[in-house]
């Protein structure tokens, strides 16, 4: 089986803090992957808020957060295993993130021995 990183992106900072129902939906989705024994790493949520996000650039330039310059920001990631990228995409499609205008990038993990 191949491994794929699913990278979550959101557009609106207001969506970052989920309601209890949204949280339950997300957990159901994540646990559903684990229940199929296809979860490699439950990953992490990445805080985009001031004080928790900085971008380091050449020439000693450090800016606050990712959110000042780009329209969308990465909110988290997980790693799953699947036979093909299409199957990984099928899993991603069931995530509730699309209800709030987010998106998911699916990327195969290159395994170095």
């Amino acid at each position: 089986m191949k491994e794929f990183a699913l990278i979550f992106r959101l557009k609106d900072m207001a969506d970052f803090k989920p309601s209890p129902e949204q949280m339950q939906e997300r957990m159901n989705w994540l646990a559903g992957i684990a229940a199929q024994n296809q979860l490699v790493d439950k990953g992490n949520t990445l805080l985009p808020v001031p004080g928790s996000a900085k971008t380091v650039k050449p020439d000693n330039v450090v800016t606050d957060g990712p959110y000042t310059e780009i329209k969308e920001f990465i909110s988290g990631y997980i790693v799953i295993k699947a036979d093909t990228i299409d199957k990984a995409v099928a899993i991603a499609k069931e995530n509730p993130i699309f209800k709030i205008g987010g998106n998911i990038e699916v990327r195969e993990v290159l395994k170095r021995d």
Binding site: M27, N28, L30, A31, A34, A35, Q36, N37, L39, K42
Partner: peptide, 13 residues
């Protein structure tokens, strides 16, 4: 949901 994230088993699933 939490249990299956800690340890997969068919019974838990």
């Amino acid at each position: 949901n939490q249990l299956i994230l800690i340890e997969y088993s068919p019974v838990t699933a």
